[in-house]
Design a protein around this nucleic acid. Structure first.
Lengths: 402, 402
DNA sequence: TCATTTAATTTAACCCTTAAAAAATTACAT
DNA sequence: ATGTAATTTTTTAAGGGTTAAATTAAATGA
């Protein structure tokens, strides 16, 4: 998954240039050799050579040269449009949440060609069972192709190599190795990634966020942060890091968090925390049943009606988020923030508290013209971001080989 | 300063290999072509070609082939030892603190060949004056060579490009551009870097810390953190980041910090904070005179005598540091920590409080077998780390050209 | 049908690395 | 002294990559 190559042979030069060319197709879609030559800043000869190889290897294909040849200037030999071959290889991108698994298959062009979703409590399963379950879901796809890579977004701390889940609140074992098992039985590459990081990746392709520096805060069963800096996903040292949710907001006597510590941001801002507080339950215990989307929607509606425990629960969530962001801003400088997930629907009700809290805890008062926006469909973004990771991996494989 | 290069021409291949070879000399000192060939994993022919060029360009030189030809096996043509040419180019590495400037000149081999130190209050000077002052100090060096690059360690937040100080407690202007001015009048490259980051860089060459992952906590006029992960210096998004000192420890009603906010870790753990508390001064005001090394030494000695305000001030510092580290560990995973600076002399008196605080605020109880050690001579480490940065820059220039 | 125009391919030259051959330099035995 | 073996370094020739320039391919329009 790394892009770093020790380059000291002309062979490596070709691989680099293959990657350059594939990347241009990935970025711009259908293009002629001449256009690619300009985009990739490579000579026409090189583009001819490389694209001949890529065609032979099935990585790209010649488009149907319909009447509609777009950019071609009417005179002269017409351009031959090429594009990535959608059938070259396939990615399965998915999202594992505490009560469901959702999987979608994408072709090499990035089109979603199938999708399956299943309710299931992951906490009750061990690594083998999860791997088997995912494989069984695959069989229900209408398409008959094998994926080359799985990318699965999951809440919690994942290792940067994508091979291990260090800790996840939705899994029974920690350091769970279902990735390894799934890889064994499916003969495919398997990558696990932090869900919020995947959301950020998905948004990074969006024009509105494409300038490159922003954070995606996921407010749902937990609180996650995915960070993009100068167009690059930010990774922690070993792990997905940027664990916004488990920054200590209230210290040891604070409300109980799912991670078994007290006072975490999550213990005030996640959906179970908001529900717990709105319903007046014991802050030192976890709710005894899962909190549903409907529960949260109801609380938000109550809060909109006026003051009361629901309103106050949401205010407190805002203060916790603001505190967490202040810490993050202190470490990374302030960045625009996109809120995603069920809790984000109440962003307008929290805005003031977030800003107050930020103001109190972040050191640069004057830099606080921070942009908060919200996005829904967290799950779609997780899947989308995961597919992007998968496609990038395929591109690198196609360029540099195994 | 980045190592990433776009390689798509055979010319780039040679540059990469030049860098490989130079790096081996940097790493191992005197070596023959044959040895370099093995170390750099390049053919003997390539090493011959490249070293011929490097010799012509004055980047390396032939060593005096004394009687002592070390590794050479007695039979056969003897190896010709080569090494980096100490006179190729020169680095000035320095440290700017609130009341002094210290500069040293290093040759291309990394040997310190001159050093000057000067008491001066930086806060009273503007960018131009600082730049002029540094130049005037240079004139007092006994050597008559011009440096190619200045690397200056300074407390506060620096931009990653090394061109700007975003914020520093010891400078009057924020975003000060003295780097630019110094660069103009000295015709040399100028880099400003976070002092703690430089300390970490210096320590990273030390065998004890060379396994690669550790943090260096600087406890003196402020609280800084330099992070090394897997042998690589960790950088924030835009800035030196990892501002341990300004994590909010006590919130808005906490003690006044030099950054003008309240409750920062620094407001409890820096030398002025410890002094303030030990002397029973108003926590909502800054001390009205600089705290000296002697002041701190005195407080530590008092604290060793038994309970009392001095002892309690140091305890509180430990709690603040522990809290800050807990936040850091939550974001980066736990890492061994080296303490440096005046305050570090009291590490044994704080150890218990640091660990208690960590335990309370860090989410993984069981991972707390963290190594704390201390190093003194913060200033030497800052200079040392800075010289390393300078030499790396020269190496890259030598390999890749301007 | 033919000149014009633009796209794509082929050709020839250049750069870099490396394996293999050659040259250089020393130790040691006779 | 002199020749042989051992080792290091340089030179040579081959192989792979890129590119500018020349050439071929394919369409338009008079």
């Amino acid at each position: 998954m790394s892009k770093t190559k020790e380059v000291y042979l002309s062979d490596d030069v070709r691989k680099q240039n293959r990657f350059r060319i594939i990347s241009q197709f990935r970025l711009h879609g259908k293009k002629s050799r001449t256009e690619i030559s300009k985009l990739a800043d490579l000579s026409a000869s090189t583009v001819t050579n490389v694209s001949t190889m890529l065609l032979e290897e099935g990585i790209i294909r010649v488009c149907d040269q319909d009447a509609s040849n777009p950019s071609s200037s009417s005179h002269g030999r017409p351009r031959v449009q090429l594009e990535l071959n959608p059938n070259y290889k396939f990615v399965v991108a998915g999202s594992l949440t505490f009560n469901s698994i959702s999987l979608s298959m994408f072709d090499y062009l990035g089109e979603k060609i199938a999708t399956v979703q299943e309710k299931v409590m992951l906490e009750t399963m061990d690594g083998d069972e999860i791997a088997q379950f995912i494989l069984s879901m695959l069989k229900r796809f209408e398409v008959d192709v094998a994926p080359s890579i799985f990318v699965l977004g999951v809440q919690g701390l994942t290792k940067n190599n994508g091979k291990e889940i260090l800790w996840s609140p939705i899994l029974s074992e920690s350091g769970m190795k279902f990735a390894e098992r799934l890889s064994q039985i499916s003969y495919a590459e398997v990558t696990v990634a932090n869900d919020s990081a995947m959301i950020a990746r998905s948004l990074s392709k969006d024009k509105a966020y494409a300038d490159g520096t922003f954070g995606a805060v996921l407010m749902s069963y937990g609180i996650g942060l995915g960070l993009y800096i100068d167009g690059q996903p930010f990774q922690g040292a070993k792990s997905s890091a940027s664990e916004l949710g488990h920054i200590s907001f209230k210290g040891g006597e604070g409300a109980l968090c799912r991670c078994k510590k007290h006072g975490c941001v999550e213990a005030y801002a996640s959906d179970y925390a908001i529900w717990r507080r709105a319903k007046g339950l014991d802050p030192q215990a976890l709710p005894d049943r899962p909190v549903t989307s409907e529960d949260i929607a109801q609380i938000i509606e109550d809060a909109r009606q006026g003051e009361g425990p629901a309103r106050e629960a949401i205010r407190e969530a805002g203060r916790a988020i603001g505190f967490g962001l202040a810490i993050m801003f202190g470490l990374f400088d302030a960045f625009p923030v996109v809120f995603v997930g069920r809790g984000a629907q109440a962003l307008d009700l929290m805005d003031e508290e977030i800003r107050q809290s930020l103001n109190e805890h972040f050191r640069f008062h004057n830099q606080l013209d921070i942009n908060f926006t919200k996005e829904s469909d967290a799950l779609i973004h997780v899947e989308n971001g995961s597919s992007i990771v998968g496609l990038e991996w395929l591109d690198q494989q196609a360029a540099f080989g195994a």
